[in-house]
């Protein structure tokens, strides 16, 4: 198949197989996603982050844990420490590179927990209504009533500091907004004709929720999670900064800022560089989220 006909096949208005319909849908979404340069920038930054995390041992010029007390707090560009060294003489660039793994780990764990719980609670409450709705949503309200960082602090204090507990704490405080959103969407979807039609085919609540409501909620959820990801990274960094997240000598970016804080006036780069890394990744998630909203929003996808 030449390139031209492949493109036509992908953009065809009349797909001839299940596979083509699916691939064509993905391809058109991809085209829309990449047509905006800001989204593309976000996507490139995040791809780069993943690559850096995967290839950390190859990329890092030094061992991130190796201390060299003779070369403490060296400035940017000193010798082969491209981004300088911290208070224990560890190479900041290498720590930054290894720290990307921790950031991704946090991101992955939180996305595995919070939106899934939120989607489940929200759609079940919204679709079933009545008592189920009351109980589930009041529970959600209880979680919503606590400020995120304070609740996370309480959890970490109870469970002990550490990256897993920090993630758990963040997830526990992050799901209620998703549940709220999923419920609100379910309420509008529930009363639509296509749900009535499938009910009249004899479909039960389980099938309706998982096959008919989820596909419509998931897209806005993905957008929301992507946009929230910046906040989640910041919360993780905040816990790290407070010494309740990742523990030393782990090169978590928030913990790195916390360490550098003491030298911020004389040795600004120690705290600034991990700060810039957090900023860049958060921004990338926000840019991608904005683009995904344009692609995934069912209101835009509805008409051709």
């Amino acid at each position: 198949m030449s390139e031209q006909t492949l493109k036509q096949w992908l953009l065809s208005d009349a797909p001839t197989s299940r596979m083509q319909a699916r691939v064509a849908g993905l391809y058109q979404g991809w085209l829309r996603l990449t047509s905006n340069w800001m989204t593309l920038t976000g996507l490139i930054i995040l791809t780069a982050l993943v690559l850096v995390a995967v290839c950390a041992p190859l990329l890092a010029p030094h061992d991130p844990f190796e201390q060299d007390l003779l070369n403490r707090l060296k400035p940017i560009g000193y010798d082969d420490h491209y981004l300088g060294t911290d208070s224990l003489g560890r190479d900041i660039l290498s720590r930054l590179i290894y720290g990307s793994r921790i950031t991704l780990y946090i991101v992955a764990l939180v996305t595995l927990i919070a939106p899934v719980v939120g989607l489940l609670v929200g759609t079940v409450a919204g679709y079933l209504g009545g008592w189920t709705d009351q109980i589930l949503m009041r529970t959600t309200d209880v979680f919503l009533a606590f400020p995120r960082l304070v609740l996370a602090l309480a959890f970490v204090a109870a469970l002990g500091p550490g990256i897993e507990n920090a993630v758990l704490a963040i997830s526990l405080t992050a799901w209620p907004p998703y549940a709220r959103m999923a419920r609100a969407e379910t309420l509008t979807i529930r009363s639509s004709d296509f749900i009535a039609a499938i009910r009249l085919q004899g479909a039960g609540p389980l099938r309706i929720i998982t096959r008919h409501i989820w596909p419509l909620c998931i897209s806005s959820l993905i957008v929301r999670v992507t946009l929230d990801m910046a906040g989640i990274i910041l919360a993780a960094a905040g816990l790290g900064f407070l010494g309740l997240g990742a523990q030393p000598p782990s090169p978590e970016w928030g913990a790195m800022i916390s360490e550098g804080r003491r030298f911020i006036l004389d040795h600004w780069w120690v705290a600034t560089i991990p700060g810039l890394a957090i900023f860049t990744v958060s921004l990338a998630f926000n840019l991608l989220g904005d683009g995904l909203r344009d692609v995934l929003d069912p209101k835009d996808g509805g008409h051709g």
Partner: peptide, 21 residues
């Protein structure tokens, strides 16, 4: 415009109805 699921192809709609019946 409202009685068909916006994310389901014709094939999915009919196959699901047949399956349920």
């Amino acid at each position: 415009y409202a009685s068909l699921h916006p994310r389901h192809s014709v094939d999915q709609v009919l196959a699901e109805a047949l399956h349920l019946q």
